[in-house]
């Protein structure tokens, strides 16, 4: 029950919320420390994380943590993120949706935009993880050829860039869609919220017609 007494629906379990915020916090660290190594004008950020050598040591360890928690979390979300025929309409009307001129009435637990985010992060984080392992001193990098390490460096930077843009859109979309952030913090959404944003999911959970 929320403060105004509206009936609530559980949208994200405690375990999912914890995984989400671990990934979020860890991403912020990885992004900022990676940025410090990507462009000299951001190297000062390394001071926030104990200086260059310590940050360089910590970054890959935290990267592995992100990989483990993210894929555990993502595995649980895969079912609800299957691409459905109805998602094509959302994708076609994406810009209209963003202008609030289009709002489909058959959305399941995740809309097509969320699914696109999901299916872009799943491979991108895989690329980051593998290229990151290849760059990791002193564990893996010394055993790989210079060419492999050069490709890894480039792929790591490109995929980190794509991930930042993706996560940027994700964060803004969550802020823009009122109620999402509360849902990811406390776990619940109001029935009205569910009925408006995810009518098909609302029907599945409550058995009521949206």
């Amino acid at each position: 029950m929320s403060s105004n007494g509206e009936p609530q629906i559980l949208r994200h379990s405690v375990a999912e919320r914890m995984a989400h915020w671990v990934v979020a916090i860890v991403f912020i660290f990885l992004f900022l420390s990676g940025l410090a190594l990507f462009h000299p004008i951001f190297f000062w950020i390394s001071a926030l994380f104990g200086g260059g050598p310590f940050m360089r040591w910590l970054h890959p360890l935290v990267g592995v943590l992100l990989g483990v928690v993210f894929y555990w979390y993502a595995a649980g979300l895969a079912r609800d993120n299957r691409w459905l025929p109805a998602d094509a309409a959302w994708k076609r009307n994406m810009w209209a949706y963003m202008r609030q001129e289009y709002h489909p009435s058959d959305t399941h637990k995740y809309n097509a935009g969320q699914k696109l985010m999901y299916w872009s992060m799943v491979p991108i984080i895989g690329v980051l993880l593998l290229s990151g392992l290849a760059l990791w001193q002193p564990w893996f990098a010394p055993h790989l050829s210079p060419t492999v390490r050069r490709i890894a460096g480039l792929l790591h930077a490109i995929s980190a860039f794509v991930m930042f843009v993706g996560i940027g859109v994700h964060v803004y979309a969550a802020y823009w869609t009122r109620g999402s952030i509360t849902a990811m913090v406390r776990g619940t959404v109001s029935q009205r919220w569910a009925r408006f944003h995810h009518p098909a999911w609302y029907q599945e959970i409550t058995g009521k017609r949206p």
Binding site: F38, I41, M98, Q100, G168
Partner: peptide, 30 residues
């Protein structure tokens, strides 16, 4: 070039968010 494109795009994402919010406001339950 790569560094500049990277940084400008990242700043661009932040600015685009602000502008979108100004123009289209939040998506609220009616």
């Amino acid at each position: 070039f790569a560094r500049t494109v990277g940084v400008i795009t990242m700043v661009g994402v932040a600015i685009a968010g602000v502008l979108h919010y100004m123009r289209h406001g939040p998506l609220e339950v009616p």
